[in-house]
Write a protein that binds this DNA or RNA. Sequence first.
DNA 1: CTGTGTAATGCTCTGTTGGAGTATAATAAC
DNA 2: GTTATTATACTCCAACAGAGCATTACACAG
Lengths: 332, 332
Amino acid sequence: MGTFRDIGLASTGTLTAPVATGNSNAIAADLIAVLTAVTAGDPRVLTIQDQSALPSGPFELAHRSLQAGLRAWVERQTRLPLGYVEQLYTFADQDRGGAGQHVISISYLGLTREQPASGEQEASWRSWYSYFPWEDHRAGRPAMIELALLPRLEAWAHAAKNPDLRHDRGQRVAVTFAGEGRAWNEELVLQRYELLYEAGLIPEAARGASGRLRQGAAPLMSTGQPMILDHRRILATGIARLRAKIKYHPVVFELMPDTFTLLQLQRCVEALAGHLVHKQNFRRLIEQQELVEETGETTSDTGGRPAKLFRFRREVLTQRAVAGTKLPILRA
Amino acid sequence: MGTFRDIGLASTGTLTAPVATGNSNAIAADLIAVLTAVTAGDPRVLTIQDQSALPSGPFELAHRSLQAGLRAWVERQTRLPLGYVEQLYTFADQDRGGAGQHVISISYLGLTREQPASGEQEASWRSWYSYFPWEDHRAGRPAMIELALLPRLEAWAHAAKNPDLRHDRGQRVAVTFAGEGRAWNEELVLQRYELLYEAGLIPEAARGASGRLRQGAAPLMSTGQPMILDHRRILATGIARLRAKIKYHPVVFELMPDTFTLLQLQRCVEALAGHLVHKQNFRRLIEQQELVEETGETTSDTGGRPAKLFRFRREVLTQRAVAGTKLPILRA
DNA sequence: CTGTGTAATGCTCTGTTGGAGTATAATAAC
DNA sequence: GTTATTATACTCCAACAGAGCATTACACAG
């Protein structure tokens, strides 16, 4: 068993590079991308393999950095420029990669504008909400929560023999799915998915880590489209991160065309957040923060009074602190 | 050059595990810990190697998961139970690990209560602010910002030949170091460090990636104690993450003893945030959020009116959404 | 030309909360 | 008692989030 690696500090004050770790713990690393765009009012994710997997590829020696590797993969795949890229999470799955080898997966969130994916592999865009139908509250709370999810979740909670565990499960169900008069929290995407996973209600949970079906599990087939391995969990992580991020960082604009109306911007935010926002307040906040400027043109595409066209003021990215802006994510 | 890995979906609907990536891109993975405690009003980090390195160790096959690996290392090293653990960032450094091999570093933030480190290696606790002296504003804005940092940063900004670049650098200096009447943003720890790094004002920037001194660089030796490699950058990431997190998640309590006074709690928050907070408002917020409960006992250790002792109500961790609480991090 | 539908836009009202200040109470040290 | 120190209770104010009402500007159907 090892101790902490000893890193030498030369007596001259010159710092030495660490001794290379041997090859005894060789590991493979995969990069996995949650690539998101918003088109026609729907938030979409780029998928491969019949919409059952996120694009991924091995991290190679040729790549200067992890992010460079990811950009290389994605741009080859989709021919899209990756505007905004952010690391999501890294995990190791002992059961992948065969005996005696770990595979480390490093997942990224990337934002772009949807274009027909024209890369080397058949890839397609698909709505977030086909994987997480309970997450879209723009037309009100989805009926499937009460009809399909809550009964089974509560049954699962009640089935616990330990009273503490039973109470704990009940609380988690109530908090994440907004039971007992609580407000829906759109950021708990991952927690909801993991709860459903633990309760055995989604197909992925019925697979062993080996990918084979576990006996005795009864997954609920209406809980959204499954994906391979833990890709759906990674997607949930990306959605949660993005829903949190749009509240204090102007990343929405990475998903918008160069010019847009305020309503288009609002629809984009609503698509991501999964619920409607109050129009007047939204506009007030956007304008008082000086995130956008008028182009001077208008459009009357939508029918109704023509809307002014705006463009994002890129200067704000340097003018204020990176964490300085906020968007209103309110109720309808 | 590869394409995205093809992940098979068997026609039966049973999902297959992916084909193992070959050994051609073998990689070593290191786990690096930013282990933090608060003692005697000072936020500290566990260091090794004469306080010039963060504890780290290779990720091994025996470890079930990344986090399990980290816990194993740290607990062996320090004999401390690791309460809260959170992943920080993963990066790959092409120049480490010798020719033809990448080293991936996965960094973690861990919270605990300081105890004499009694592990296998000589380790010691050291104040955050000996590495980042400009980050401690509890006794007012450190004079060294105006005396040592800003003049050189502004010189660096003015030295840019491209006018756009010059303007951009000036803005970044003003934003991160609160020039021109701006408010200090305590979360920009990493941005400040990176700015100083880019400006060549810290010793680490004078080293090439090989660890040797670069010629022509003139690092400012008063900008805090250096660390090996990019460990100081990782520490900055951890501090920034923690400063952000304490505002909406009750993690401070991981650093507190079982019972504590409200002033002790406040001092702990102030130590982390790097500035003082308004006492009355702090107490108001703590109490109205029902984060703590009285033990019924009081202590008069500090001289002055005896303070009630409180304990953290662990129930809140399940009773409300994980992202549901907030602490006030205001001005003095 | 007129009504109707739809969206843009301007304005008001209100309850909550964050930041800050004032006042009083309870103890130890001297 | 006096002083220093801390705890604790209250109040004040400005900013802001959430919500609603009213008006304006266009396309289109009749």
